[in-house]
C-alpha cells in the first residue's frame, strides 16, 4: 500500500515537473514569437502596401543591435543606446527607401530580391568596416539582470520577460496607430488599394517613406532588444529574416494582426518542436542517436510544415490585409 502511494506520488511529481517544463517552454515560445513579430510587422507592411520584397529588412535589425551596443558602451547606459538605436534604424530605413528602393516599386520581384540582396552585402561590409569583423559584447542592463521564479523551481531570466512585455506593448501601440490615426487609415487604405489612395490625392511617396521608416524602426527595436541575449555579429539579420518571411506568409501578407498571430504560432511550433519532439521520438525509437538525429531534423522542418499546411487551407495566409 505504502509503496503504491509512493509510486503515485512520484508519478504526480513527474507530471507536475513536466507541466512546469511545458509552461517554461511556452514562455520561451512567446519570447521568440514576440521577437519575430517585431521583425514581421514592418516586413509585412512593406510587402503588403508597396508590394516590395525587402531582403535587407534584416540589416535594420543588425543596425539596431550594433548602434544600441555601440552607444550603450560609449555612454555606459543600455537605455540611452536603446533610445538612440530606434531613430537611427528608422532614418537609415527612410534613406534606403528614398535613395534605392523607390526606383524598384514598379519592377518585378526578382529585381527587388537582387537589389535588396545587394543591400545586405553592402550593410554587412559597412558594419565590418565600422565595427570590425568580430562579434561584440553587449551586457544585460543591471536593472533586468537576474531571474525570477514565476514558475516554481524554474528561475526565468527577467530580461526575457521584459522582451515579451515590450513586444505586447508594441503590438497594442501598433494597433491603435493603425486603427485610430489618420496615418493608420492611409496605411490600411494603401494595403487594400494603392491606386485609389494615390488617385484621391494622398502623397503616396511620403506615405511609403513613413511606412518604411516605421518598419525599419521596429526591426531596429528587435535588434536592440536582442543584443544582450544573442550574438551581435555581422549577418545576424539573415538568420532571423528567413523565419520572418515564414511568419508573414503564415499570417497573411500585409496584415499586422496576421503578423502577430503568425509570429506566435511560429514561435510555439518551433519551440515545442525543439523541446519535445526528441523526447517523444526517443520513447518511440529504440536507438537514441537515431531518435535524436531524426528529432533535430523534423523540428527544424516543423515551421515549414506549418507554412505548407496553412498555405494548403488558406492560400493567402491566416488573415487578409484590410479588405
Amino acid at each position: 500500500m505504502r509503496r503504491r502511494l509512493a509510486c503515485a506520488g512520484a508519478a504526480v511529481f513527474l507530471l507536475v515537473m513536466t507541466f512546469y517544463l511545458f509552461l517554461e517552454q511556452t514562455l520561451n515560445a512567446f519570447q521568440l514569437g514576440v521577437m519575430l513579430f517585431l521583425m514581421a510587422a514592418g516586413l509585412t507592411l512593406v510587402f503588403g502596401i508597396m508590394n516590395m520584397i525587402n531582403l535587407a529588412h534584416g540589416s535594420f535589425y543588425m543596425i539596431g543591435a550594433y548602434v544600441s551596443a555601440y552607444v550603450g558602451h560609449a555612454t555606459g547606459s543600455f537605455f540611452i543606446g536603446f533610445l538612440v538605436a530606434l531613430p537611427v534604424a528608422a532614418l537609415v530605413g527612410m534613406a534606403v527607401e528614398i535613395i534605392a528602393l523607390r526606383k524598384l516599386y514598379n519592377r518585378d520581384h526578382l529585381d527587388q530580391v537582387l537589389a535588396t540582396f545587394g543591400l545586405i552585402l553592402f550593410f554587412n561590409e559597412l558594419t565590418a568596416i565600422i565595427w570590425g569583423p568580430q562579434a561584440i559584447f553587449v551586457p544585460i542592463p543591471e536593472l533586468f539582470a537576474g531571474s525570477v521564479e514565476i514558475i516554481p523551481g524554474v528561475p526565468y531570466p527577467v530580461y526575457r520577460l521584459v522582451i515579451i512585455l515590450m513586444g505586447l506593448a508594441v503590438a497594442l501601440a501598433l494597433r491603435s496607430l493603425i486603427v485610430s490615426t489618420r496615418t493608420g487609415m492611409l496605411i490600411r487604405a494603401g494595403a487594400s488599394n494603392r491606386e485609389m489612395v494615390s488617385a484621391l490625392g494622398v502623397d503616396i511617396d511620403r506615405l511609403y517613406t513613413i511606412v518604411f521608416g516605421l518598419g525599419a524602426l521596429l526591426a531596429g527595436l528587435a535588434g536592440a532588444l536582442a543584443g544582450p541575449i544573442l550574438a551581435t555579429e555581422i549577418g545576424m539579420g539573415e538568420n532571423i529574416l528567413i523565419l520572418t518571411f515564414v511568419v508573414i506568409i503564415v499570417g497573411g501578407i500585409g496584415s499586422v494582426r496576421g503578423a502577430l498571430v503568425g509570429a506566435l504560432l511560429v514561435g510555439l511550433v518551433d519551440t515545442y518542436g525543439r523541446a519535445f519532439l526528441p523526447t517523444v521520438l526517443r520513447s518511440l525509437i529504440e536507438e537514441p542517436s537515431v531518435a535524436d538525429g531524426l528529432g533535430a531534423s523534423i523540428s527544424s522542418m516543423s515551421i515549414y510544415i506549418l507554412m505548407a499546411v496553412v498555405l494548403i487551407f488558406r492560400p493567402r495566409g491566416l488573415f487578409q490585409a484590410y479588405g
Binding site: Q25, N28, A29, L32, I240, A275, P278, T279, D292, A296
Partner: peptide, 21 residues
C-alpha cells in the same frame, strides 16, 4: 541527454529548459 541543434541557431531557450530538467 544528447541534442543536435540547427546550424546557425540563435536562440537556445528551449534546449536550456530541457537541459535544466
Amino acid at each position: 541527454g544528447e541534442v543536435y541543434t540547427k546550424l546557425g541557431q540563435v536562440d537556445y531557450a528551449a534546449e536550456l529548459a530541457n537541459l535544466r530538467a
